[in-house]
Amino acid sequence: MNKLILGRYFPGDSPIHKLDPRAKMIAGIAFIFISFMAKNGQGLILLWLFTFFVMSLTKIGFRVFFRGVRPLIWLILFTVFLQILFTAGGIIYFTWGPIKISEFGLINALFIFSRFVTIIFVTTAVTLTTKPMELTDGLNFLMRPLRFLHVPVDELSIMLSISLRFIPNLLDETQRIMDAQKARGAVFGEGSLFRQMKALVPIFLPLFSGSLNRGEELANVMDVRGYRSELPRSSFRQLTWKIKDTVCILVILLLIAAFAVLNLVID
């Protein structure tokens, strides 16, 4: 549980920490598209340079970022090998039945690998430097246009922020219940898979029932304190757009321009 890096916040006061969550999220989403603009060697280098630039700006150790990649490493390696083994074209180095290791295969694999990893690094940089509450505020803002389609944006974001708020409680509660069942002789993580699954019942049932109760209590409390879903909501935390946020967006635009120029010139 402690290994999960996604959705973790690392406190700090780096330039990236201080950016408006809206700017960071827009930039992060834009980067996903930008990574597909890298079509040649120079573009690839630019992609990596920008990624390491952002990572070092966060002032968080690179080890933390590498840990973020680890859960996805098998997926990445799988796609990379698929590319290497089944793409033909260019110089062919090795053939064995349908399997061909070719120049194009290796190059494609390199691009796919780079896209995967840089996207993960940059989005991790966004989530590591943004408080969960800021993320939901930012998301609320970005989803605003959906209101015209009658999507209940405010309700969705309050649901999200309440869920995020209760994750630490849920982890504590899990630990407490596990301790209590261990004290009654339960053993976890031993025996056959079936036995291991069965051993989880005494944890999950109390956890579910506790969460349901808590949810109901919370709903009642919100009712009593006058929460109405249909009224417009104001926010205690006001997001303010500053010059550095505009700079952040400009940097992203510059990056897009650079890739466009690279692609034009090289072709």
């Binding site: 407490r176 219940i177 209590a180 109390p206």
Partner: peptide
């Protein structure tokens, strides 16, 4: 586990451990 057999432990708010 042998230790836990000998020491019965009633936690704060033990009702949260009921599951069956």
């Amino acid at each position: 586990k042998a230790v836990r057999k000998h020491i019965g432990m009633v936690f704060q708010f033990p009702e949260s451990q009921l599951f069956a």
